[in-house]
Design a binder for these strands. Structure first.
Lengths: 349, 349
DNA sequence: TATCCTTGAGAATACGAATTCTCAAGGATC
DNA sequence: GATCCTTGAGAATTCGTATTCTCAAGGATA
């Protein structure tokens, strides 16, 4: 009933038990073919008997790798809340890493805190072999640090910086696609509900949105909101009030779009009749809206595959040495929220 | 342009630079007061200059702790997909850990694979100091292993085993609450759409559901489904067809409830008129349904707080030594999907 | 002034495994 | 039969910190 935790079995113990040296045990564990079959068997025997398992910390110290990668997500405290995008992302990464028999160290960075901390805690202290960064802002000091120290990393997002490995959707194209969908559907006052200023996904999609509207000769209107359903709901309340309120919105993500839906419902705007809606991510939420929410699918699975593969290649040291920006195509999933406005009604607008 | 990664600064380097011994550097870094102020300053100076940072692996080896805890979630491959419950959970844990300046190592276990692997990879190999387990099945061999080896761990769920630290909702009560809501609303053929057999959350809620129905003198009907929106949708198709189809469902979680909603929509059943619905988790999804989805809120934040605190206490070795089962109360959030059936219509049923 | 404590800091060792160094035994070569 | 390679495995070293051991200098005490 002692408080002691046993499980102190080390290679040396196994060595003694098998009557060999510690180095031999190490060799056997490593599968070194330079060990006589009978010795090998004796060692394995002993190891099995004591259910020996190597100490990951010691291994990690001696080899120069930890077998872990970090995932750094930058969101305000509580900002992960219920965002299916992240479960998707995390799930995909895990599945991918599973094959590479590497583990994941998750790290959330709150907006306000020093980003450098994470860089230090994770990479400089050798806790992980490399990191996947999600979502960057236009000027992200982390990237430069990582670059300077030559740490293996890949950004999921737009680095706004050259010579950085990154995987991303073509968010400019995505924004354009979304806006064009609404234009084609016959909406006339198409605004955008974007994320916080300076966040690259948001900026890129704004750019795409602007291009589409410019091309159509329509004026742009942009609202910014924090992430999350509640924040978006509040901003939407403002955006959708007044006589010149937009009749359609491109919204930065599904969750925020749900905020818009709630507001619309409150003030009695019907979707898509009074308000057209296109968002991004194509999560489950899109199916739940009565007639469906049109959304741009980001192919997270592909993004993650590319990102993890590329990170692993960097860690292993093989693969192409020149940093590359990988763009994963998006697809618009057309649903009820952007249904073309019936001819008859269009005239009334 | 060399492939070399620098950043090989060790305590010894700092020691040399400051003209002291390595042990002194170590002492300074540890904040040992037994070092003369001027020496201390000299060392800190040098450390800052070379931006020295201790190697977490070495520290972890020498001290006997890794400063990391593991989170083990058991779900089929891809099964995390978009489940807001997990983003919530993970988010909360991160926030909580943040305060305890510990890191999180995430681990997904796929149903079919040997659970022992994780136990070994994480705990026996000393990668983490303790683990939080989520969702257990009625007979979970991991628990016994953890118990035997005296590893610090806490289960979020029902251990079905004594002498295990665990935090959970009172899912029996929750199931009862959900069923009673539908009974009170006047539904007559209340069935349950549960999770896979053997999963404790599911079993517990089934029990609660059964009690409520027994008490009301109504017959129980239970369907089992895998987790996720799609699986639930398929099972719902079967459950809701036929002349004796239920007129209300208690569904194991919001995501699965959405599957039911989709099916209902397809076959033209209106909610709550033709089909009453109560589910669990109270995620954002509940607000999205036109009239809202009634759901039992689980207070994830509280669960996580209790779980993490308890795990930390175990790791530190203080706190109550006797394993305890902590129950966090649930609240029913009443929304449109369980709106009382109007008197007039009730007669028609 | 001689002896006994403090105190501060260097030297040495431990943590657990991987790797390099060394060397003895056995086989091949001339 | 003497020399040169292999080859297998033990001994020693290393990874970077934390800690224990040691010891010299300085202060207090008698």
């Amino acid at each position: 009933m002692g408080q002691r935790r046993p499980n102190k079995v080390t290679q040396l113990d196994i060595a003694r038990l098998a009557g060999v040296s510690q180095s031999t045990v190490s060799r056997v564990m490593a599968g070194d073919p330079k060990v006589e079959p009978d010795l090998r068997e004796r060692v394995l025997q002993a190891a099995r008997l004591h259910s020996y398992l190597p100490d990951a910390r010691a291994q990690s110290l001696r080899r120069r790798e930890s077998g872990m990668i970090g995932l750094v997500i930058k969101r305000p405290r509580g900002g992960l809340a219920g965002d299916a995008f992240f479960s998707n992302l995390i799930g995909e990464i895990m599945d991918r890493l599973h094959d590479a028999k590497s583990r994941l160290c998750l790290e959330l960075v709150h907006e306000q805190e020093n980003e450098v901390t994470v860089h230090e805690a994770l990479l400089r202290s050798k806790r992980v072999d490399g990191v996947v960064l999600v979502e960057s802002v236009v000027h992200d000091s982390r990237l430069e640090l990582l670059q300077r120290d030559r740490f293996p990393f890949v950004l999921i997002g737009n680095p706004m910086l050259s010579r950085v490995w990154s995987v991303d959707n073509d968010n400019v194209a995505a924004g354009e696609m979304a806006a064009n969908e609404l234009i084609a559907a016959g909406y006339r006052r198409i605004a955008m509900l974007a994320g916080p200023p300076g966040v690259t996904v948001s900026e890129d999609r704004i750019l795409g949105y602007s291009r589409a509207l410019d091309a159509a000769g329509m004026p742009c209107r942009i609202w910014h909101s924090e992430f999350g359903i509640e924040a978006a709901r509040r901003v939407a309340e403002e955006a959708l009030s007044g006589p010149m309120a937009p009749d359609a919105l491109v919204v930065l993500d599904d969750l925020m779009a749900m905020g818009v839906v709630l507001t619309a419902r409150e003030i009695g705007m019907r979707i898509p009749d009074d308000l057209g809606l296109v968002s991004f991510n194509d999560t489950h939420l899109c199916h739940v809206l009565e007639r469906g929410l049109t959304s741009v699918s980001l192919n997270i699975e592909t993004i993650v595959r590319e990102a993890v593969d590329c990170l692993m290649a960097q860690i292993r040291g093989d693969g192409p040495s020149e940093p590359r920006r990988i763009l994963v195509p998006c697809q618009l999933r057309r649903r009820g929220s952007s249904a073309p406005v019936p001819r008859g009604e269009e005239a009334l607008r």
